[in-house]
């Protein structure tokens, strides 16, 4: 493998780390509130507004934040994705300094699905007169019904993406002997320039 020796580097800035863990807590809490929460969903709505704020932050940070946070830096073409995917299956760390080209796909998918989820939530109307999305009255009842349907399906998509996220982290930890969780806590990761 090309490149020099691995060294420790601070790859995740504090704002991005706070963003990540806050988003994780809000998404898990809101998923559970949606599935098994009380029939008064006021808290679910407020946490959803929190997710909107986080997504807006991440979008802005993706353009003006530090290098590892920028979309232009980590979203790569198909060649880079395939090349990384080939390397990824081997049982040793990749020492990648940030989101890998494959990881970038997961980042984009997660942010995209969450953006759809909060949008459909704003327009959803479950016909119970208490948990009506704040923008549902601005669209037809067919549209708000469709928003509700996609909001419910979106919950399944989010579950799949989160489980995939955890599975890949375990794969890195157990098969590749690379810890991805610690860097997201303290920011420091073993990396190798190439």
């Amino acid at each position: 493998m090309a490149g020099g020796a691995a060294h420790r580097e601070r790859i995740w800035d504090p704002a991005l780390r706070v963003f990540h863990w806050t988003l994780a807590v809000l998404v898990i809490a809101n998923w559970l509130l949606g599935k098994i929460g009380p029939s008064d969903m006021t808290l679910h709505f407020w946490l959803g507004y929190g997710v909107i704020a986080l997504l807006v932050f991440r979008l802005v940070w993706g353009f003006v934040g530090p290098a590892t946070a920028r979309f232009t830096r980590f979203v790569r073409g198909p060649r880079a994705v395939v090349s990384y995917a080939r390397e990824m299956i081997h049982p040793h760390p990749t020492y990648w300094p940030g989101h890998s080209p494959v990881g970038a796909l997961a980042v984009v998918a997660m942010l995209g699905v969450l953006a759809l989820q909060v949008t459909t939530g704003l327009f959803a109307d479950p016909d119970d007169y208490i948990n009506v999305g704040p923008l549902a009255s601005t669209v037809s009842s067919e549209t708000s019904r469709m928003a509700l349907r996609w909001h419910n399906r979106g919950a399944d998509l989010i579950l799949i993406l989160v489980l995939l996220h955890w599975a890949v982290i375990l794969f890195y930890r157990l098969w590749k002997r690379e810890d991805l969780v610690r860097p997201m806590i303290d920011g420091w990761k073993w990396v190798r320039r190439r």
């Binding site: 029939s39 008064d40 479950p126 007169y129 208490i130 509700l148 349907r149 419910n152």
Partner: peptide
């Protein structure tokens, strides 16, 4: 009053109404 009524609507819709 609405919380009680709406909660009953929701509980039944969740389990027995299509796509919601």
């Amino acid at each position: 009053v609405l919380q009680k009524l709406g909660g009953a609507c929701k509980n039944c819709h969740d389990d027995y109404r299509k796509d919601d």
